[in-house]
Design a protein around this nucleic acid. Sequence first.
RNA 1: GGGUCGAUAGCUCAAUCGGUAGAGCAGUGGCCUUUUAAGCCAUUGGUUCUGGGUUCGAGUCCCAGUCGGCCUACCA
Length: 547
Amino acid sequence: MSDTPVDTSDLIAVRRQKLADMRARGIDPFRANWDQTHTSKSALTQFEAEEGAFFEKNPEVKAQLETYEAADAKLSAAKQERRAKIEAGELTAEDPYELPEVPEKPEIPEGSVVSVAGRIVTFRVMGKATFVKILDRDGVVQLYVQRDALPEGVYNTDFKKLDLGDIIGVRGPLFRTKTGEITIRVQEYALVSKALRPLPEKFHGLTDSDTIYRQRHLDLITNMESRGRFITRSRIIQEIRKFLWNRDFLEVETPCLHGVAGGAAARPFQTHFNALDCDFNLRIALELHLKRMLVGGFDRVFELGRVFRNEGLSRRHNPEFTMLEVYQAYSDHRGMMELIKGMVHHLCENVLGTYQIKRADDGTVIDLSGDWREVEYSDLVKEATGDSDWFSRSKEEKLAACAKLGIEVNPELEDYEVTQDVYEKLVEVKLIQPTFVTRIPKELIPLAKLNESGDGTLDIFELAINGQEIAPAYSEQNDPDVQREMFMEQVGEETQNLDEEFLQALEHGMPPAGGMGVGIDRLVILLTEASNIRDTILFPALRPEQG
RNA sequence: GGGUCGAUAGCUCAAUCGGUAGAGCAGUGGCCUUUUAAGCCAUUGGUUCUGGGUUCGAGUCCCAGUCGGCCUACCA
């Protein structure tokens, strides 16, 4: 293999040739391991601490350094000014000039020796020395490699043949370069894993969204913003768990395969279980099994899980998405208000470090701190339509009003659905600041308790932030007969779509409870200031590539 | 599902009225021991998404298809 001629027309062939040459010389380009003592970040923090301790013992060196830095800044400013004048034609390069004097830079001892490993993301050869940057799990660290610091010959025959994208391990002491960047002075290095394919261009990274989604690994190497967003997503989920564990909630797992896909109204994905020779649906909600946990005496439960809805793709919809559902016995929708607000505040404190979020769309600042606005559904609809008698109008009048308001509404919809359309198209999208929408009409949700006033509204809220529904929560329906009736109205003739197992469980008695569902992806969109659900899902649904 | 825009070198992008497909980065060879998108010299690299058509001539115009973005529809 090693005498295969190099095909320079193919970047991969060049790298394969390097690989073959290494193997021929008995070097394994894919090592079993590398002993790390630090990550990029912990190495940097360590040096800062060591340097700080040194300055404390030697304050005069710190003073010298500050003098040096100030003088150096003046020097660069003077050079820049001169360059600007030459460009503007006020001076020529031959004109005599004086530059401010800069004192000698004081010596600062090198830090301790660290061992790190990561992927090469920049590689700047400057003759007999090279600057390299490697990326590891928590960031980038610079390496300084001098020819004479490596065993004889290695720099030219091996080191300079490294490629962008290769993963290397290095060992050496920390120091600060002339420009102030904390850097590892490499004494020892090894190729840990050879990259046979080139990375995307370093400055622009990947921009083709198709490639970004299909080859997310490349996006993560190249695009630090994207990388950070997925780290934040993971920390959000971690902190949600902590928040609920601390309130004595039990995390449970319920099945993804459902005989009847209940707990929401959405088209399910269907599949077939061979061993039982029967059809199953992928779950569209977690609700019904979690309520059966309440019947079973698990008074505080939650599940963080994937649900699947066989519906369209959009900026806000992916067919599989992550849902949190929480149920707390002896609580109600009011209790859920406190819970969700507490949870979001916890995330602001512990993940984001701020309560102010900038919208990706228009830069509006969303303030998540303090108490959140609470407003009734009917008031919002009346306000949006400018009609205080909206709810006593006939369907025809409502449709006519919709046309005037410039929204398209399917005339075959039920009366309450027309209103709901108005809500979704005119109201919800404008609820940018956190808002609890309460007293929602009973036709919309069959699983919640009716308000005691008997006006046909439900004891529920929908939390809207950023123009999207983030979390609906109910005082859960625990009357088995009312529940059955509500289901019957929903399914009509199709009684095979009744979840009898759930209804029977309710007949054993379910404690009064508050329950809530949180769309994790939408929450992450909000908290990471993303504009598209696909930026928050590692591998979003795409049509499989052909061939 | 409908509308609309797009696909050119490994990556990011050019290409005038239909007239020899270019640049930067990456790669390759050389210079360079503190760089910051390092710099300098030289240089390789193309099924212009696929398949048809019009034309003396197509990256460019037409038709069909594939994949994608955005809008829209569906969506408790």
